[in-house]
Design a binder for these strands. Structure first.
Lengths: 246, 246
DNA sequence: TCGCGCGGTTGATCCATGTCAACCAGAGAG
DNA sequence: CTCTCTGGTTGACATGGATCAACCGCGCGA
């Protein structure tokens, strides 16, 4: 059983230019001729089984990863066992940026379902970014977007109440599913209540109760991991309506 | 009254190579000959008065900034007035990375005291990064470090209790003062209790009470914004000792 | 097909932190 | 030197979410 499945060179030569995730992934916004030059960038593909790590805290950093199939969570563990989920990633999104700063990964990336990633050797990426302006710029955008996203999560964790957090989470998921051509109003969550809770800074019971309340209020229909958003606009209002009128 | 104070070309030509913040700032780790080439990068310097913004949410992104003198906070505002401080920045640290992704700044950067920054035009930075490998790499490291730092804050906000958060905050400040050649155990905070609270996801009263409790316990001596750390190791233990033994 | 176990839901109670309010101290203005 | 204002401290009380515990039901393996 190999965890890593290198592909033939022939199979890889067309990695990016033929990929249907182009719109979401690193090559976004690049001109066609440059995208063809990207094909040499992707070193291999790697399949990761559900619950298996793509990388772990402390692993040597050598590559970043673009998700082709499936989804992941990233988390940070404290010595005493506490876990903080720092993000959920879906197809087209980039994993591993945390490793650049120290050459060691600073979090764990765990597959939420059987998944597959493109391995992008970091040295080669830097090299190519020096000659393909579009790649350089897009890569910087991807990192910056991650920083902005993190600020959003801080906002969530620092200033919002439980139901606001869950509403924001659902709307964010919905928006990302939409961007991938799936339904905005009906989707399947790949993570457990506990993982959602860890991400949102809540206990799983609180997440569960918030789901139930949303259901009672007719905002969403919840059946385990299957979510149907019934009242998008009321959900949106929930987020930025101050709770106490003072 | 000009907010922006462009310097003479002569004054700028030596911007980075003569700067004593070299060890902390963008040029870190670069070889001497490259650092000299950096001198052309810094476009101007800008002085910012206490409480004034370096940039605001929605401002067009054109440059990143390296802090020469002083300190800043960055924050995100919600429509209903809630504020989340996303970070405090000191000399040598880089501001503005949030703007790359959308070409618009996505947070406010406010001076906590009279400060001065080096303006680094982003277009020029990308251009130089394509020819100076060391600059490219260091720039990526800076962005990655920001992402890792953000994950740490999420950990704080998502999984730690009030006193743990404050302890982590104090230790982080101490470590950063040390890196700048100041005392590790005695320093002056530039931000208010409310700003600390916003950063840590707490109300100012809770911050104040935690300070008082630390003082009672002999961990630190607090006099308004002046902090003296008396028992570093006990402070450290506070962070990762699970509170409930179950 | 049945039984087991994990993930999810719900209820009762507790507690950390928020809220509201009073007061205090130092800094800056007149 | 005093007044005032802003930031900080402290106390009393309220509450959102955590904790603990019971139970439920779906999916998987035997």
């Amino acid at each position: 059983m190999m965890a890593t499945v290198p592909m033939t060179v022939a199979g890889l030569k067309k990695a990016c230019s033929q990929c249907n995730l182009l719109e979401l992934c690193l090559p976004f916004g690049m001109i066609d001729s440059d995208i063809h030059r990207l094909d040499e960038l992707v070193g291999a593909r790697r399949k990761i089984k559900r619950h298996q790590p793509l990388y772990r805290t402390g692993d040597l950093f050598e590559a970043i990863y673009a998700i082709r199939i499936g989804s992941f969570k990233t988390d940070v563990l404290l010595e005493d066992g506490r876990e903080q989920v720092t993000g959920f990633q879906m197809t087209g999104e980039i994993l591993g940026l945390d490793g650049i700063s120290t050459e060691l990964h600073s979090c764990n990336a765990i597959a939420l379902e059987d998944s597959e990633v493109c391995v992008i050797p970091y040295a080669k990426l830097e090299e190519l970014a020096r000659v393909i302006e579009g790649l350089q710029h897009q890569f910087h955008k991807v990192m910056s977007r991650e920083i902005v996203r993190d600020h959003g999560v801080m906002m969530l964790l620092g200033s919002m109440r439980a139901e606001e957090r869950l509403a924001a989470f659902l709307l964010n998921m919905s928006q990302r599913f939409t961007a991938r051509g799936f339904s905005a109003s009906e989707f399947h969550l790949r993570m457990t209540r506990e993982e959602i809770g860890s991400y949102l800074g809540l206990k799983l019971e609180t997440v569960s109760r918030a789901f139930s309340r949303f259901q009672d209020e007719g905002l969403v229909a919840v059946q385990q991991k299957h979510i149907r958003i019934l009242d998008n606009s009321r959900l949106k209002k929930l987020i930025q309506h101050q709770p106490s009128v003072r």
